[in-house]
């Protein structure tokens, strides 16, 4: 149960960074931290104590094996997180080229 609570604390740190910080890079970092916390939480739900890796080998039954479905879901989730990070960095670089800063309080004015 402590592991779940630590996951929530990690998520809260990411949430704080997203809502409070003014730097776009810090916001991207906060989104990354939230994503890590959610991935770890899903894997913790599928964990089975003293379990084995979900790879079948000769002569072993599938008893006492970690649940592979959350792992497949989280694999897709990690990939989507990577694409999200790349896209956000591209947007941040464009904003820097246009406004010359990463500060979100300075970019919300009409210019040009």
């Amino acid at each position: 149960m402590t592991a779940y609570i630590l996951c929530f604390v990690l998520f809260s740190i990411g949430l704080f960074s997203v809502v409070r910080k003014r730097n776009i890079i810090k916001i991207i970092i906060g989104i990354g931290i939230m994503e890590y916390a959610v991935n770890l939480f899903l894997i913790l739900i599928g964990y089975c104590k003293e379990g084995r890796v979900p790879i079948l080998t000769e002569g072993q039954s599938i008893k006492n094996m970690v649940d592979p479905i959350p792992q497949a879901m989280v694999l897709v989730s990690i990939v989507l997180g990577l694409t999200l990070t790349l896209f956000l960095v591209a947007v941040a670089i464009r904003i820097y080229e246009k406004y010359g800063t990463f500060d979100i309080t300075k970019i919300n004015r009409l210019k040009g």
Binding site: F8, S12, Y47, K49, G51, K63, M65, D67
Partner: peptide, 23 residues
């Protein structure tokens, strides 16, 4: 968020209690 998480935590099995043979 932490309050919602605390409510949700009551419905989750403890760590490591995923059923063996769920596959």
């Amino acid at each position: 968020f932490l309050m919602v998480a605390h409510k949700a935590l009551k419905g989750i099995p403890i760590v490591g209690a995923s059923l063996p043979g769920a596959v």
